[in-house]
Amino acid sequence: MLDVQLRRAVSKPLYTMASALDVPWITPDRLTMAGLVIGLSSAALAASQLWALAVVAWLASRVLDGLDGTLARRRLAAASAPRSATASEAGGFLDIVADFVVYGATVLGVAVGATTAFGAPWWPFLVVLFAYYINGAAFLAFSSIAERTGRSLSDDDNRSLFFLGRIAEGGETVFVHTLWLVLPFIAWQIAIVWSIVVLVSAAQRMIVGYRLLR
């Protein structure tokens, strides 16, 4: 819901950072993998109830998640189109897979830490994972079919996939996962509310996607 505004707000800082990192041995894919490793470490830290360190690692992984695409677009603009476009598609695939892994691992890490430290129930976190599964299936299936059928449905942010924007997007996900790590003693209550939001978003994406593809 807030992704467009957030991307506009952080685009200049990210571009400045990407410019500073634009050296031969740093590639977008390496930034993606670094974000994946740091994101997984955040989940492990949460599971160990090291909440402050988990927050730092989580936010660092999200910064890297924004930097990889920014650096890729910067280099794409200065390189030959055919070769760079292929690399960009591969990088986009790696990026979305890494995001799914980190999101799922963070839910699991918070669940382990919260249930161990505060006696939180497991089921709200399981519902969140179920909601993520449905939501991811909806927008990934839509993106794939829209591309295969030649639908001209372009968003304006140059991402590798067309995203059906709904109330639960990347910005909201980053905020909620941060909130879990800052307030782990009420993480399961947050998970209940968040799962409802994500399920509503999934329903919206399924309805809108079906209508657009008819």
Rank of each mutant, 00 (worst) to 15 (best):
A111R: 12
M206R: 09
V208E: 13
E147K: 11
F185R: 10
V193M: 00
A120N: 06
S143P: 08
F142T: 04
Q204Y: 09
D22E: 12
V97M: 09
D68C: 00
T32W: 06
I38G: 11
F175Y: 05
L108F: 07
I145D: 10
G109T: 05
F175L: 14
V4D: 13
V37M: 12
L71F: 05
T149A: 14
V176H: 05
R205L: 07
P24I: 04
V55N: 11
S154G: 11
V4G: 10
A187E: 03
D155Y: 05
G171W: 07
R8I: 07
G92E: 02
G170K: 10
L183S: 07
G165D: 10
R214A: 12
L129Y: 05
W194F: 15
A77T: 02
M17P: 02
E89T: 06
N135F: 08
L45D: 08
P28D: 10
G150H: 14
V102K: 01
A168V: 11
G113L: 11
D156T: 04
L64H: 03
W194N: 01
Q189K: 02
D68S: 01
S88R: 09
F162Y: 12
V101R: 02
Q5I: 06
R166Y: 05
Y132N: 03
A78I: 02
W194T: 02
V174Y: 04
N135I: 03
A117S: 13
V107G: 01
W180N: 09
I38L: 13
K12Q: 10
A44W: 10
R7G: 04
L140Y: 12
I38Q: 09
T16M: 14
L161Y: 15
S144Y: 14
W188N: 04
A57H: 12
P121A: 12
M1K: 09
V37D: 09
V200E: 01
R62A: 04
V107S: 00
T86E: 11
A117E: 15
A87F: 03
R159V: 08
V112L: 15
R30M: 11
Q49G: 10
L94N: 08
L108P: 03
Y15A: 13
A87Y: 06
R151E: 12
V107R: 04
D156S: 09
D22M: 08
L21W: 05
I38E: 07
R62G: 05
G91W: 01
Q49N: 13
K12G: 08
V182A: 05
A46H: 10
I192E: 02
I190N: 01
G119L: 11
A43D: 06
I186R: 01
W188L: 00
T16C: 10
P28S: 12
E169L: 15
A47K: 04
G170P: 11
G119E: 13
T32L: 07
G104A: 03
F163N: 08
G35Y: 04
S19W: 09
